[in-house]
């Protein structure tokens, strides 16, 4: 791989991670949706660049799915959902922004510490790409637990999934990348429909309480 190709792939991977951090301090819902859409677009670019440099045509499909579905369709759907369900556009934080960012830095450090020694002997691009991808995949769930908003859970889940796809496209010879991205997209869609049908409005921890308690059974003492 030429120096330029490596630099561009590296830049795109780092950009995905940076957007994850950007996601962590968004206070408004629509802004968060826009950031995750941008992240998906950068992911699409990363996949496409891998497709070009590695001459792997199927990665174009992954890139297309990321661009059309996750960068355009889902964000539009989420914007429509917010208007439709009258969800307030501010995000109530469970942890403060400082703590959230600190945790984000922590999991990123952990990912690097974990992945770099594990993959010793591989190419530098693969190692760093995997470290970025793991960090993104961990920041997604961090976002899901750090915010009390139902829609932000979808956003966090999408971000986590972006990390997984980033890892998948970075590894040479990874099977079923396309299928995996399709499957994850279906999961995201299901998630959104779940939010819609259950009329989950503000909080993920105080939503349709009566309905959920039916499933939990009887509370003792």
């Amino acid at each position: 791989m030429t120096g330029l190709a490596f630099d561009i792939a590296h830049l795109l991977g780092a950009l995905v991670l940076t957007l994850s951090f950007a996601l962590l301090y968004q206070r408004r819902l629509s802004a968060a949706i826009n950031v995750v859409a941008m992240q998906a677009a950068v992911l699409a670019a990363a996949a496409a660049w891998q497709a070009v440099t590695r001459d792997a045509g199927h990665l174009f499909v992954t890139a297309a799915i990321a661009l059309i579905f996750k960068a355009i369709a889902v964000p539009l759907l989420l914007h429509w959902l917010i208007r439709r369900l009258n969800i307030s556009t501010t995000v109530e934080a469970a942890f403060g922004v400082t703590l959230t960012m600190g945790l984000g830095v922590g999991v990123s450090t952990l990912s690097i510490l974990l992945v770099l020694p594990l993959t010793a002997g591989e190419t530098l691009l693969l190692r760093e790409d995997l470290a970025f991808a793991l960090a993104v995949a961990l920041i997604g769930p961090l976002l899901m637990i750090a915010r009390r908003n139902a829609v932000i859970q979808v956003v966090g889940f999408m971000s986590m999934e972006n990390g997984l796809i980033l890892a998948a496209v970075g590894v040479k010879g990874m099977p079923l990348v396309v299928e995996a991205s399709v499957a994850f997209s279906v999961m995201v869609a299901t998630f959104i429909f779940g939010v819609f049908f259950f009329h989950i409005r503000e909080r993920f921890d105080s939503l349709d309480v009566s309905r959920l308690e039916e499933m939990q059974g009887e509370r003792h003492s």
């Binding site: 469970a94 999991v107 952990l110 961990l138 769930p141 961090l142 899901m144 637990i145 009390r148 993920f204 921890d205 105080s206 939990q216 059974g217 509370r219």
Partner: peptide, 18 residues
């Protein structure tokens, strides 16, 4: 443990993963 909010379950899982 059966009566926690979903976010707390997610936190527990995340903590276990980390």
């Amino acid at each position: 443990l059966q009566f926690l909010a979903i976010r707390v379950y997610l936190s527990l899982m995340f903590a276990a993963l980390i």
